[in-house]
């Protein structure tokens, strides 16, 4: 029982990280109709930004996180502006290959700056006490991950549903031309989307770094691909879908590690994805979109 609760909590925490990253994939897909495969590497950049500002520049941890968020937001917007905006009318395959190119570019630049050796991620959350309930002990960083992710998701949902910019994002995601006729700048909306997605990735990078403790230039690849899987799992383009998909994926992965096999956990995760897509091709919460002629 204690093992189950512990595994469940760890799974939720891992799932929250996936969900934060998956939101970036799904929002960009929903609005710009592209798969931004460089999104995972933004996490890596965010983690290095924390290392540089906290370990090397000796900033306090909170400030380091703020720096990381700012750098990631800037990076996301710059990538969109330089790499994707010129391809707005290009074939989707061209954009996809460009995204993969940006991903390699980021990894290689990180390698030039930080080398191929892994770097230790600063222990930001060690001052938060561990919560002990009977025999279950919950690390402070885990609680913080769960709590903050819940707050971020609630805030994002409110933002998308009730603010003027959030509504404009939904309008652009549904019909770009009609949105422009309303006076909504599609380019600006896409920029905002990339900024939000990258901020979420930066937050995810802090939690990811805190739980995996070491960072290398290819760090972003695995959480990136898992989060993409989570977004597809939940129904790509759907924001609640990304949240649900991310959390389920984390829980399934952790449960497989605890009860079945650490080696097989990834295979099980992707197996479940295949199963879901066979039964419901649009993902758990995805909507069926009929192409209009």
């Amino acid at each position: 029982m204690i093992t189950l609760i512990q595994a469940l909590l760890n799974g939720l925490s891992l799932g929250s990280i996936y969900a934060l990253i998956a939101l970036g994939y799904t929002m960009v897909y929903g609005i710009a109709k592209m798969l931004n495969f460089a999104h995972g590497d933004v996490i890596m950049v965010g983690a290095y930004a924390v290392i540089t500002s906290v370990v090397q520049a000796k900033m306090p941890g909170v400030l380091g996180v703020v720096v990381s968020i700012a750098i990631c937001a800037l990076l996301g917007v710059t990538i969109e502006f330089l790499a994707y905006r010129p391809l707005r009318k290009a074939a989707s395959l061209t954009v996809l290959i460009t995204a993969i190119g940006v991903s390699y570019l980021l990894q290689n630049v990180a390698q030039l700056i930080y080398g191929t050796e892994q770097k230790a991620f600063p222990e930001l959350f060690d001052s938060i006490p561990t919560l002990t309930l009977g025999e279950v002990s919950i690390e402070g960083s885990l609680l913080l991950t769960l709590g903050l992710t819940a707050v971020i998701m609630a805030a994002l949902t409110l933002f998308i549903n009730y603010t003027r910019v959030g509504k404009a994002m939904r309008a652009v995601s549904e019909d770009k031309e009609a949105a422009e006729l309303m006076g909504i700048s599609v380019n600006r909306t896409i920029t905002v989307t990339f900024a939000i997605g990258s901020v979420l990735a930066a937050v995810a990078s802090v939690f990811y770094g805190a739980s995996y403790t070491y960072i290398r230039p290819t760090t972003g690849a695995m959480p990136g691909i898992k989060a993409f899987t989570a977004a597809v799992f939940g129904g790509i383009g759907s924001i609640p879908g990304a949240m649900l998909g991310g959390i389920l994926l984390g829980v399934i992965e952790q449960m497989s590690k605890t009860y079945i096999s650490t080696k097989w956990s990834d295979a099980i995760v992707f197996g479940v994805l295949v199963l879901v897509l066979v039964i419901k091709p649009t993902g758990l919460l995805g909507k069926k979109i009929s192409e209009k002629v």
Partner: peptide
């Protein structure tokens, strides 16, 4: 905008 409410559609009309 088919997935938005009638009122939200109208609000988008007054976006500017």
């Amino acid at each position: 905008f088919l997935q938005m409410t009638v009122q939200e559609n109208l609000e988008m009309g007054a976006y500017t």
